[in-house]
Amino acid sequence: MADYESSRFRNLSGYQLKIWNVLLFLIPTLGISYILSLYSYFSILIYREQYIGLFLALILTSIYLAVPARSNEKNKKNAPWYDLLLACLGLTVGLYIAIYYPEILTSFGIITLERLLLSVTAIVLILEALRRLFGWILTGIVIFVIAYGLLLHISQVLYKVRGHHLDNY
């Protein structure tokens, strides 16, 4: 049995533990229902991306509830207010994708302030969750790949490649 004093996860209690247990129960349950295509028995059309958005919501929420920002954090019993805020933001971003994906699909090229803010929030939340679970090395590699894609238009003369400038969007 893992010792909670040396574990990287919080030893949650109360309502946070109940929410975390429900989230951890829903993740494989939704995965199994997607694999078995249970929604097709009810004549409901659900896109794959809606499931992915729902998984993103559940996983980000469970990570921010259970994994502290620093390994030497004093309060290992309950999540602090900022982790609860990040968990709510993760739930919001994932549920937005799950609920509004058919609308996103029909107006894919239209960039609104709402979509821009939610996408930047999702990227930051995913990077922070990656840092909490795997450390700075993998997070740095992902940031480098994102920056490379965004800044490729600057070095296209050197490498003879075609980049995408942000003004095109």
Rank of each mutant, 00 (worst) to 15 (best):
G90Q: 08
A69I: 04
V93L: 05
G94Y: 09
A69C: 00
G94P: 03
S62N: 07
L65A: 05
I46S: 05
L56M: 14
D83G: 11
G90T: 07
A57Y: 01
C88W: 05
R48Y: 11
Y64Q: 13
A87F: 00
K74A: 08
Y100D: 09
P80F: 14
G94C: 07
I63F: 02
G53M: 10
E73C: 05
G94I: 08
Y51P: 01
V93Y: 03
L84M: 12
N75L: 07
L65Y: 13
L60Y: 07
A87R: 02
Y64G: 10
N78R: 05
V93W: 02
K74D: 06
K77E: 15
K74T: 06
Q50L: 13
I97K: 08
P68Y: 00
Y51H: 08
L85N: 00
Y64E: 15
Y47R: 12
A98G: 00
P68A: 00
P80L: 15
A57K: 01
I63W: 00
L89K: 11
I63T: 03
N78V: 05
G90H: 03
I59R: 08
L85C: 06
L56P: 02
V93R: 03
R70T: 08
N75P: 00
E73L: 12
R70A: 04
T92E: 06
L86G: 03
T92N: 03
R48M: 14
Y47K: 13
Y82V: 07
V67L: 08
P80R: 14
K77I: 09
A87I: 01
S62E: 03
I99K: 10
W81F: 12
Q50R: 11
A57P: 02
D83F: 15
I63M: 05
K74L: 05
T92C: 07
V93F: 02
F55Q: 11
G94Q: 04
I63P: 00
I46R: 11
L54Q: 09
L60D: 06
G53E: 09
L65M: 13
Y82K: 10
L58W: 05
L95N: 10
A66L: 04
S62Y: 08
N75H: 14
L84Y: 12
I52C: 04
E49G: 04
I52A: 13
Q50F: 07
R70K: 14
K77F: 08
F55W: 05
I52W: 01
L60V: 07
I59Y: 12
C88L: 14
P80A: 09
L65H: 14
N75V: 10
L65V: 12
I46K: 15
S71K: 12
T92D: 06
A66R: 06
K74P: 00
I52P: 01
L86R: 03
C88Y: 13
L84T: 10
L65F: 15
A79Q: 12
L54D: 01
L60W: 11
I99Y: 12
I97H: 07
G53W: 07
N72Y: 12
V93Q: 07
I52L: 12
L58V: 06
L84P: 14
N72R: 15
L91E: 12
I97D: 02
Y47E: 10
Y100A: 07
G53P: 00
L54C: 09
D83R: 14
I52H: 05
K74R: 11
F55L: 03
L86H: 01
L86T: 03
V67F: 04
N75E: 13
S62T: 04
L95Y: 10
G90P: 02
I99E: 05
K77D: 12
L54H: 02
L58G: 02
T92W: 04
A98E: 01
